[in-house]
Computed example of a mutant assay.
Amino acid sequence: MRKLPRVLVVEDEPSIAELIAVNLRHNGFAPTVVFDGAAAQREVDAVLPDVILLDWMLPGESGASLARQWRKQERTKTVPILMLTARSDESDKVQGLDAGADDYITKPFSTQELMARIRAVLRRRAPEVVNDSVQVGDLTLDAATYRVSFRGNELKVGPTEFKLLHYLMKHAERVHSRGTLLDKVWGDHVFIEERTVDVHVKRLRESLGQASSMIETVRGAGYRLTAQGSGARPAQGTSASAA
């Protein structure tokens, strides 16, 4: 018998939780409903779900805080998390995604759209293996150890910025549109504004410090990571002349 995907629903409003659970059952999922963060953690500790639907505003610990914790733990860091919230401002969406959510769904929402998004994250659950190391100029990223360094000095980079930097470094010297970056870094199942990319590029530049000029804004086109930035020495074998 085929195993039904397990969905942990963390929602403190019983009527919404029940509506979600009924629709999940009708669409071939096995839902478990809890109403606060402590109960959610107990469920996760007992049986790892295939997907977590996580309300932002919960009694006690917030959904964003739970998402950050689960992303830091080896056992739970790859479990898809869909944030459910009435907070619809772009800054809230950025905060939710930055906390580790794979998608962000605002209330009120269509149950059909919710089911489609759950199926989308399940299709993409097997992520690309990224245990590689990549270097551009004096900037090095090691995906296996989750470390970024510039000229031997380790840099602190947030989880979303790390994924963005990894993609840019793997495809250095190319110009990437905001839409392309959304698809490749966040996934084409995530429905967020292209301006979100600008926010994360700004944060990434702040994290990179002296290496920030390696990320160039190409007016009207997007962004490019280059070894020829003024803060970086050219990679071996490249010319030091200005472009």
Rank of each mutant, 00 (worst) to 15 (best):
V218P: 00
L208H: 05
I192A: 15
L182D: 10
T217R: 15
H189N: 05
R205Y: 14
G179L: 11
I192P: 09
A172P: 02
E206P: 06
K163C: 11
G187F: 02
E193N: 03
D183I: 01
D183K: 01
I192H: 13
H171C: 07
S207F: 05
I192D: 13
Y167S: 07
V175A: 04
L165G: 08
G179Y: 10
V175E: 03
L204D: 04
G220L: 07
G209C: 02
G220E: 07
T196L: 03
G209N: 00
D183H: 00
H166G: 10
F162T: 09
V190S: 05
S207C: 07
S177K: 00
K163Y: 08
V197A: 04
T180K: 07
G222C: 01
G209R: 00
F191Q: 15
R178P: 06
L182E: 08
F162S: 13
R174Q: 12
Q210E: 15
V201H: 09
E216S: 14
D198Y: 05
L182G: 09
L164H: 13
H171K: 06
R219A: 12
T217Q: 14
H200G: 09
G179M: 12
W186Y: 15
Y167W: 08
K202P: 06
A211Y: 11
L204V: 04
Y167H: 13
K202I: 09
H176L: 09
A221H: 11
R219L: 13
R174A: 14
L182F: 10
S212D: 12
S207W: 03
H171G: 07
L204T: 05
G220P: 05
E161A: 11
H166R: 15
L168I: 13
M169G: 05
K163F: 07
H200M: 14
L164F: 13
L181D: 01
R224V: 05
A211D: 14
H189F: 11
E161H: 04
A221R: 11
A172I: 02
L165V: 07
M169T: 02
S207V: 03
K163T: 07
D183L: 00
